[in-house]
């Protein structure tokens, strides 16, 4: 069952000199099992978009529904629908507040109305998912952990809500390459195991190419491109550059090789590009 945006328009500070339309007439459907990367320049409207998907902002026009239930209604069904969308904000470690890791992660499931046993299971599962050992971390203060560990606690707090739709707003910002890989390894494991939808907001083209099954490019409050990442990075480079975006480095290298007369197919995998280079050299030596 899908997460659906129908003709959504949203304007900030309406009726003031600062009025700014952040989304204009956006329609969009996201199914469970999709991994959607959302890219767009600062101010393009992508944060406004994901805040609508999670029910944090109400559209001025149009509607946001999960499985047909309007997220912005005031009833039990709408609350349940909102709970099915989990959002990990940018720098989520800034939102940690409880005295122990356990309490911080348990906050959401408890608010959802789960009993103590269910809360306990949700916390244990979530901690296992993000690679935090229960016995060594559950009773510790989250404020005494490293930055990377704190980010994991914050992500665990959202995962413990068992969302069907998980929104991640730049989860790798400020992390070193190894920590970035670790976060994505966990997200991919969760995505594959639970068959949820992941919506990843990112400025990193490589992440979009490597992990997503679908790519949304936002510009001027609208979805200007929606498709398979490889197709967009291969066939829509000019539109991407015009929208302040870019293609991943491995596509650039392929373009550079092509421009100098080495015919290679563009690919998101460096290993696949290297294989083509080796084959070209073999063919050349055979001549």
């Amino acid at each position: 069952m899908p997460l659906n945006l129908q003709n959504v328009t949203f304007t900030y500070m309406k009726g003031t000199p600062f009025e700014k339309t952040a989304l204009s007439d956006v329609s969009l459907q996201i199914e469970k099992g999709e991994f959607v990367a959302v890219i767009g320049h600062t101010g393009s409207g992508k944060s406004t978009l994901v805040q609508h998907l999670s029910g944090l902002l109400h559209p001025d026009k149009g509607s946001v529904t999960v499985d047909g239930v309007n997220l912005n209604a005031k009833n039990a069904a709408a609350k349940k629908a909102r709970n099915s969308v989990g959002m990990v904000f940018q720098y989520p470690e800034h939102q940690i507040f409880a005295e122990t890791v356990y309490e911080d992660i348990a906050f959401g499931p408890r608010n959802k109305g789960l009993g103590p046993d269910e809360v306990d299971r949700a916390v244990r599962d979530a901690m296992a998912f993000v690679g935090l050992d229960f016995d060594s971390f559950a009773k510790r203060s989250p404020f005494r952990l490293s930055g990377g560990q704190m980010r994991r606690v914050a992500i665990a707090g959202v995962i413990a809500m068992e969302p069907d739709y998980l929104i991640l707003d730049e989860p790798s910002a400020g992390l070193d390459p190894r920590s970035r890989d670790a976060v994505f390894k966990e997200v991919m494991a969760l995505y594959k195991k639970r068959g949820i939808a992941v919506i990843l907001v990112t400025h990193n083209m490589e992440e979009a190419a490597r992990y997503a099954s679908r790519l949304l490019v936002i510009s001027g409050g609208q979805v200007i491109l929606d498709g398979v990442p490889h197709d967009i990075f291969t066939n829509h480079k000019d539109e991407l550059l015009a929208a302040s975006m870019d293609v991943p480095p491995v596509y650039k290298l392929a373009d550079c090789l092509n421009a100098h007369g080495l015919p290679v197919e563009r690919t998101p995998e460096l290993a696949a590009l290297e294989k083509q280079i080796l084959e070209l050299r073999r063919a050349k030596h055979a001549d």
């Binding site: 070193d176 190894r178 480095p249 491995v250 290298l253 460096l270 590009l273 290297e274």
Partner: peptide, 17 residues
């Protein structure tokens, strides 16, 4: 725990091969 620029990585991999 760090990376290299893509071209440096590719050069390294190709050299290994």
């Amino acid at each position: 725990g760090l990376e290299t620029p893509l071209a440096a990585q590719a050069a390294y991999d190709l050299r290994q091969k």
